[in-house]
Simulated assay, not measured.
Amino acid sequence: MQPPPPPSITPHQMNLLRVVTSMAWADGELAQEEVDLMLDRLSGLFAKESTQKEALSQELRDYLMQNIPPEESIAKLVSQEEKELVLQLGYEVIAASARTPDEPKINAEEAEAYKKLVKLLNLPEEAVKRVEKQGKAGENSDTSLVDKLTEKMEKFMGG
């Protein structure tokens, strides 16, 4: 099967999107509601006109439905700031994915994916601890995961 063409966003935006999406797929599932919400927020972040937003939303949908391993995208991250953002977003994605009250916040597949992400990012231990502390502090927030992701990506991109 031929992969869809890349969305019409910058390579930098695409790279961040790819890594975060790979964490969302860590347990092999991506809920349709999460996809719809992510598409709405991210297309609004990356496109300003409604026609652009609609077209970009469809491009991103095709892309989000692919389960792509993170190694290729992580290799393209340059700054420590980018790597910390990716770690923070990855942490929040897997921490928010419990689907039932009986399911742990982070299941075994997600924990393994997170460990792999930490290793691939090769950040200093103090940076990892700081990011995890911030992630844990935000777990009790009323802000939705997608809102947090959008806000952090917007800040990082200077929006």
Rank of each mutant, 00 (worst) to 15 (best):
A111T: 05
V118D: 04
R41A: 14
F46I: 02
L89R: 03
D62Y: 06
A98H: 05
W25H: 10
K119P: 01
V86P: 03
E82S: 14
E59H: 10
L30F: 15
D40T: 13
E33R: 13
L77C: 09
G44A: 02
V128N: 00
E33C: 03
V128H: 01
K83G: 01
E29Q: 07
E84V: 01
V86Q: 04
P124M: 00
V93S: 10
E109G: 07
P69I: 07
Q52I: 03
S97H: 10
K119L: 09
E49W: 08
Q88T: 06
Q66H: 12
K105T: 09
V78P: 05
K115A: 13
K48H: 12
Q32I: 14
T21N: 14
N122H: 09
K76D: 06
M38W: 04
E72D: 15
S97C: 05
M23T: 05
S97N: 13
S43A: 12
E112M: 07
I68L: 12
S22K: 03
A108D: 15
I94Y: 08
G44N: 02
P70G: 03
E49K: 12
A95V: 05
N67R: 12
L39C: 04
E92D: 14
L121C: 08
L60D: 04
D102K: 08
G90P: 05
Q52D: 15
I106V: 15
P70T: 03
A55G: 05
E59F: 08
L117E: 02
S50F: 06
Q88E: 12
P124Y: 00
E54R: 09
N107D: 10
L37C: 11
P69G: 08
E84F: 00
K115M: 09
E112I: 06
E59L: 07
E33M: 11
A24K: 06
